[in-house]
Amino acid sequence: MNNFIKFISMRAGNFSLALFIVMLCASISTMAQGDGARFYWKGFMGTNAVPVIVNSMGGNANPMDPSNTVIPGSEFSAAMSMAGYARMLPIGKRSALISVLVPMGRISGVASLDGIDFSATSRGFGDPMVQFSINVIGPKAIMNIPDILRYKPGFSLDILGSLAVPIGQYDNTIPINIGQNRWYGRIGIPIVWQIGQWIPGKRTTFEFLPAVWFFTDNKDFVGKTMSTKPKYQLEAHLTRDFMERMWGSFDVISYLGGKSTVDGVEGDALSNLGLGGTLGYQINENMQLTLSYNTTVNDNDAEDLKMDGFRITFLYGWHKLIEGMHRLKGNE
């Protein structure tokens, strides 16, 4: 029997690279950087993943506030990390992803609101966000290794819904908080469009994420009520493999709308464009690392959103079948 196995491993060739199970991420679009490239690629159903994200961001809006409410003249800087859990699961014959992400860290900033200057630091846990997405157009769910081997996204379209639960740390005496003290969420349709062949080292995709964010009111924003109209997100990425394990992307993100009103005083709606780039590296079958930078570009006016940031994402994924195969291999 051992001979048979050796025979097969010789004949089956090197397809281990096709067994990457880390082909998913958890949404981290609480920042102006968006979800990022290659977020909505599909993986082996049953795959679990833990993302750890480190952000360094700054600008004239609270990076943790998904409405990106601009406070003219303000200066925020944030050192954040996020950790979460995601799992791919089949629903019907479609692939779905459920994830939860908890932000944590520290934000400090200087802001002036209604003539009152604030200089504050906020630290602790933010609002956990739960997200669910399901594919509606594209290849069927990857249920087994042959499906992985034959997977090609072609044109793939998902529907997603996110919801942040307002249980993060919040101080109603300052405008700078990690928690937002209100429910918010979004619906969107992530699209992955394969350009050319699906060969590691040569994969190219064009990816879009149109989404709409909805917010309830924060009824205790420094003692006032903050309302925010729906915000429209359009994210696009042109991604390309540089090598089998290394890829990069050109990222564009735009936000529109999301006008905030604080006790009847209207702010400006967003109309900004951000550009950036991402480098990704698949460390092994279980681990992936990405590094990205994004900055707003049409931000000359005081009311314009100014924000930039670095983000490092480490993702560890596992699947019981793949882990079992590793154990057997280790015992040979």
Binding site: N3, F4, F7, I8, A12, N144, I145, P146
Partner: peptide, 19 residues
């Protein structure tokens, strides 16, 4: 004799060899 009975092979192996 050194070619295995295909029915004992895992689906992934069948898929790769079948390819």
């Amino acid at each position: 004799w050194f070619v295995p009975d295909y029915s004992i092979l895992a689906p992934a192996t069948r898929a790769v060899l079948g390819r």
